[in-house]
Design a protein around this nucleic acid. Structure first.
Lengths: 208, 208
DNA sequence: CCCCCTAGTGAACATCGATCAATTGATGTA
DNA sequence: TACATCAATTGATCGATGTTCACTAGGGGG
């Protein structure tokens, strides 16, 4: 039954990851099955364990890919206009991605903190990379302030977008969910940035 | 082996829920076991299924209790001072609760959307109840604006708190996680509310 | 042509959630 | 007291899970 070199190692590894993604899209992380994944790509369970330590490892690798895809998606957004307009474009792209990849996205955050399991370093690094996209957009507002403030504001906005998407995505209907998320994120951006401006004014008019 | 009336039905039901909470605290929702819960309270698996349709049902009931406990916790917060100060007190209480009940809190949101599984109505209702706490605190800022705006701003703040707590709780150390969450929520509150004020001024000076 | 090495196998194991026929034992009745 | 009733509780049973590992197949090098 062994069919060596039907696929290269890399091909096979990719097939496992792709099929896992398919299964998660269909039934969610909670309900995937190693046997099902193997069967679907025409191999047996054992083969999976030649590539991944265990199911958690497989899921973690896939989550990494999902984070990379999000980064690419956001990186491809054409940013035009004011800071507020650029931030809105980023938020919209983020909303669209998490909604169009609902189960994959849930997987990323459900496997964030299984107790007793270490969160790998590259997890945090990939998130920092996403954070930097926001940081770059809002940085013009912080030219006269402590750069640390820019970084922290990026964190606030990132966390808030995350919360808005997570809770909006409880809504079943695609359009309603995205519309709600867009409305809330616009309010957040408008008020948060508007709240920043008085302080920027201070910094401008009182240079030391 | 049957030991009827060792405990009343209500007692037994409560024992199951309590033991489930203990297990979740220790190992997380992902890893609880019906057999273990039954064994720990001195009964057999079958008994669990006399009280709950299945494990999901049991977890859902427990999640409801957790949401109720959060509501009680926030309701007991003494609110003093300005809107900003009151909102900060609410946020701090929310942060403390989610951190002190980490695994239970994760359970609430991980079981939010297993695909193909309906989110029960009372889930949303309990969340609306929490939302109302925020709405009441910020309502003084919206006396001259559309009440719908108050409701939406409460949503924005609630979602954002949720995101801040979720992402901060990835940090292992209790104090660091809570300190970070407090810092970010303070920035959010300060800037968001400050962003609201110019519009409130508008509404004040241009009454129709 | 043969042998080696490894990619791939799949039976075996422990454990899981869920079911349901069988059993236990407290209670009401004769 | 003896018996019948019946809800409460049991636990063997089922199908499925993740993981392991001794084994096998078969392509490539000598």
């Amino acid at each position: 039954m062994a069919r060596r070199y039907d696929h290269s190692r890399d091909e096979l590894r990719q097939m496992i990851l792709d099929e896992t993604a398919n299964q998660i899209k269909l039934v969610g992380v909670q309900k995937i099955s190693a046997r099902k994944i193997a069967k679907e790509i025409g191999y047996t369970i054992g083969t999976l364990y030649n590539f991944f330590r265990d199911l958690d490892d497989l899921i973690m690798q896939l989550n990494g890919i999902t984070l990379d895809r999000l980064h690419t998606h956001l990186n491809n957004v054409e940013l035009n206009g004011t800071v507020e307009e650029q931030l809105t474009e980023l938020a919209d792209a983020y909303i669209a991605f998490t909604r169009n990849n609902l189960n994959l996205w849930n997987s990323v955050f459900e496997y964030r903190l299984v107790p007793g399991k270490e969160q790998p370093d590259w997890y945090q690094e990939k998130i920092e990379l996403l954070l930097r996209l926001i940081e770059q957009v809002i940085s013009p507002l912080f030219t006269h302030l402590d750069p640390k403030e820019c970084h922290q504001s990026a964190w606030v906005l990132w966390c808030s977008f995350h919360g808005i998407c997570t809770l909006s995505n409880a809504e079943k209907n695609n359009e309603i969910a995205m519309e709600q998320a867009r409305t809330l994120s616009r309010m957040l951006i408008e008020n948060y940035l508007s709240g920043l401006k008085p302080r920027i004014g201070e910094a401008d008019s009182e240079p030391h």
